[in-house]
Design a protein around this nucleic acid. Structure first.
Lengths: 109, 109
DNA sequence: CAGAATCCGCCGAGATACTG
DNA sequence: CAGTATCTCGGCGGATTCTG
């Protein structure tokens, strides 16, 4: 498919679908805690994001995992141990978020 | 403020605030119809986005205007005429949306 | 033409309690 | 430790009707 084949509408839909994956009160906070190849356990994230409820943490992680943005690794042991990290595609988000941040900062200047 | 002063959390908040301005079922569709310096009347947007309701079109435009992303120009005449276009800051969104679109497309490849 | 006003259904998200 | 299970409420977004 050619770049210039995009109509305003189809391009909007493409970005909307992308944005939809990032919506959710806590997803970005979680993602930022995983950037740079960092690996975090469920309990790590709970401590890093004190205001989040267990329900929301689990739910947002499930969605991020289902969307292929984060990877989940379970160690079959007692007590349980689960690690989360970004997928390759998840890491590729960095430039886009940087661009958004840059744009946001532009407002004040 | 120095770039490296960002903690994961504050950076997340910055991007979240930016994303919040773009949330809303129809904002991106509207924005894409205004990119490239295009100027559209209210009725133009209604035709370009047939599925949108008048309420939502007006509401999303108000919010985009309030957030300083689009500009609204009223011609005091009968019948009324109102034109919408992107502010300078709104135009600056392009690179960020491009990056997001690029990221979204990466998934298939 | 460019909207404002109203009513309504759905779901995202918080709080709380429980479990393998 | 790493989650599920419920209950609840607020707000987004759709449909419809009315107006300067």
């Amino acid at each position: 498919m050619v770049k210039n084949a995009y109509t305003p509408v189809t391009a909007a839909v493409g970005v909307e679908n992308a944005l939809r994956l990032l919506e959710g009160r806590w997803k970005l906070v979680i993602l930022f805690h995983l950037f740079g190849g960092r690996v975090r356990r469920y309990s790590d994230l709970e401590k890093l994001i004190p205001e989040i409820s267990q329900k929301m943490l689990a739910q947002q992680l499930r969605q991020l995992e289902g969307d292929g943005i984060v990877l989940r690794k379970v160690y079959p042991q007692v007590p349980p141990k689960v690690e989360y990290r970004l997928s390759e595609w998840g890491q590729a988000l960095c430039p886009a978020l940087d661009a958004l941040l840059t744009w946001a900062e532009l407002r004040d200047s």
